[in-house]
């Protein structure tokens, strides 16, 4: 049994125009000790997915269908009290903005001790303080500074304090939502290093949610590429980077500048993700895909197993033979429907 099994999950947001299908039929498994990355653009549903797992969806959001099995129990069927018990103890979260996630009027120690004592009544102060010291050392903070207030910490230190707090109760699953996005290069590097180190030292599983493919490349074993509420491709991180089959994975990777490469021709994916209130029929990426055919616009792609990868593209099998070099060429991407729409409009005047 996997630690986490998400099955056909549908998470919708109530809007005036009808429900927006933020997460639409997502299934995946996360093994114990595994580090899984979820990448995609804003609005692809990655944060909604994380929020459904930890149980902090905003009021307008609801789980329409599907299940989230954590250690065999379905989280979607639990009541508030049951879920609260799991929070921090079993599933914890490292939020994007540590600044807003720490309470400014309590010291860091008080906040961590509070979490420990709420979940484990009867834990003595001495024991709680030992945990604080241990966690501070784990994330590379001086334990003597545990009695500081959040404002006395720099951005990077606050993020480390957040990580310390999320690990204090030894959870089985840690969700990291854009853990380094608000940080500077050097701080980002130190946090990434800590995360990798922690992954080696403890046996928690980690779910890393980010738009930055380089963060995933450095911290994850497996990665899910999401697009418009659905999984486009999933598999081991090396395979997704070296031999992706989904045109969106290829495009996304080539849209990122790499500091180690000279004269890169960056690729631009013209257009925008579709409206999720009334999503297009067929493949949701079709409008922005250079290889899309009529079939793509009509028929929802099914799952294709390509080695260790699982790819949702009708032409996954053909990519290897002829389409990969074609998809890897930025010029190809000027031929998508979305790109042509921009061009056609230009021709009108």
């Amino acid at each position: 049994m996997s630690l986490l099994e998400v099955e056909d999950l549908e998470v919708y947001y109530e809007t005036e125009q009808g429900p927006a299908q933020a997460v639409d039929g997502v299934s995946f498994e996360l093994e114990e000790g595994e580090n899984l990355g979820i990448v995609g653009e804003s609005g692809c549903g990655k944060t909604t997915l994380a929020k459904s797992i930890i149980g902090i969806l905003p009021d307008a959001g609801y789980i329409n269908a599907g299940s989230i099995n954590f250690k065999g129990d379905d989280l979607t069927e639990m009541n508030g009290a049951q879920r609260r018990r799991l929070k921090w103890e079993e599933i914890s979260m490292i939020a994007q903005s540590a600044m807003n996630s720490l309470d400014p009027v309590y010291t860091i120690r008080e906040q961590i001790v509070e979490a420990i004592e709420t979940h484990r009544p009867g834990t003595g102060r001495v024991e709680s303080n030992e945990i604080v010291t241990e966690m501070f050392e784990l994330v590379g903070l001086d334990p003597e500074r545990a009695d500081d207030y959040p404002h006395q910490f720099s951005g990077g230190m606050r993020q480390r304090a957040m990580i310390a707090m999320s690990l204090a109760l030894d959870p089985s699953l840690v969700l990291a939502d854009e853990p380094t996005t608000a940080l500077d290069v050097i701080m980002q590097d130190q946090i990434l290093k800590r995360i990798s180190q922690i992954q080696d030292e403890i046996n928690s599983s980690m779910l890393v949610i980010t738009h930055d493919v380089s963060v995933v490349a450095e911290t994850c074993d497996r990665v899910i590429v999401m697009y418009a509420g659905q999984i486009a491709e999933e598999g081991p991180v090396e395979d997704i980077f070296n031999n992706p089959y989904h045109p969106y994975s290829i495009g996304l990777k080539r849209a990122f500048p790499n500091i180690r490469m000279e004269n890169q021709d960056l690729l631009s994916i013209a257009g925008y993700p579709p409206e999720l209130i009334d999503p297009p029929e067929g493949c949701r990426f079709a409008e922005r895909c250079p290889m899309a055919t009529d079939r793509c616009r009509e028929e929802v792609p099914s799952e294709h197993e390509m080695g260790d990868l699982r790819t949702y593209c009708h032409y996954a099998e053909d990519i290897d033979q002829e389409l990969r070099p074609y998809a890897d060429d930025p010029e190809t991407w000027e031929n998508t429907v979305a790109a042509k729409n921009a061009g056609a409009q230009a021709g009108d005047d």
Binding site: V185, I186, D189, S214, A217, K253, R260
Partner: peptide
Amino acid sequence: ALINAVPVPDPDVGR
């Protein structure tokens, strides 16, 4: 230090 701190979008490259 600054250049070494930049993450690389390639799992095969160790920094």
